[in-house]
Each structure stands twice: as C-alpha cells, then as structure tokens.
Amino acid sequence: MRTIRIGAASVGVALTLGALATPATAQPQRSGAAVQAQTTAAPAPTGLAYTYDAATQTVTVAWDPKDPADTLTRNYRPGSCGPTPQDPCFISSQIILGNSFSFKKAPDTAPVYVKIYAENAAHQLTGSQALTVTV
C-alpha cells in the first residue's frame, strides 16, 4: 500500500497489477467459425443482369440474392473492368449490402464491363463473371 498526500489529507492506495497482466505469449482465442470466415473466400455472385432507364440514363445491375446458408459473405463491391472484360478491374470502395447498384451511362458510348465482388470478414474478394453493359 502506498500513501499519497493531497493537501493536508493522506489517502492510502493499493494497486494490484498481477491479475491484469497478460503473458507476452498469450494469443486471443478465435472460434472455428471466425477462423473459417477469415480464411475461406465468399462465393462469387451469380445471375448478373442489368436494366437501363433511358430517361435518367441509369443502369441498374442486379444479381442473385445471398443464399441464406452463406455465412461468409459480409457485403459486395462493384468493379469496373476494361477496356475488355479480360482486363484488370477497378474495385470500388463502395459497400453494397443488398443485391443491386446503379450508375449513370450515356447511350451510344463504349461498353462497360462490370463485376460484382463478394467480400468476407477478412476483406478477401471473390469476383463474378464480367457483365457487358451496352446501351
């Protein structure tokens, strides 16, 4: 016990640190499901299709809803590939929680190649097949 003097009064203080200390080699415990979510890739989105609203020049891309048994997919991210579907894709930082997203596209412009990426808890991405958007 240590005595601390505050003004004219003395206060006794006892500190026990041993119970709070963690050995340097201790590792946080993870459940099997947490480890699986970090190491197993989410399934690739399927069933991509698009609609086009000419009045607003808006493309809406939709895909099959997440299977209720899918415990790996946390969200989706859109990707834009090009100038061909085999070229690398720019993956957006936009997070999509549902199964559709929209973007603007003027008619009679070059095709846009879109992929949707499923993301797991460890931020691993699994891409869909490329969808060619022409309007």
Rank of each mutant, 00 (worst) to 15 (best):
T16S: 13
P107D: 07
T40H: 08
V59I: 15
T60L: 05
V11L: 12
C89K: 04
A44D: 05
G82R: 03
R2C: 09
Y76F: 15
T126Q: 06
Q29N: 11
E119T: 15
D67A: 09
V112A: 04
P78H: 01
A19V: 02
R77L: 10
R74T: 15
N75P: 02
D53W: 02
V13S: 00
K66C: 00
L97C: 02
C89F: 04
A42Q: 07
A55R: 08
F101P: 00
P23Q: 10
T51K: 05
Y76M: 06
L17Q: 03
S10N: 13
D87H: 10
Q36N: 09
S100I: 03
Y52S: 05
T3S: 09
K115I: 14
M1Q: 10
I91E: 02
S102Y: 12
P83A: 09
T58S: 09
Q124P: 08
R2M: 12
S10E: 15
G12L: 14
T3Y: 06
D70F: 10
L72W: 00
T16D: 14
C81D: 00
I91R: 10
P85T: 01
T56D: 14
A49G: 07
T39H: 12
A26W: 12
Q36K: 05
T39S: 14
R2A: 13
T58N: 09
V59T: 04
P78T: 06
W63E: 01
A34F: 06
Y117F: 15
F101K: 01
A26G: 04
A8P: 15
P28W: 03
A54T: 06
V35Y: 08
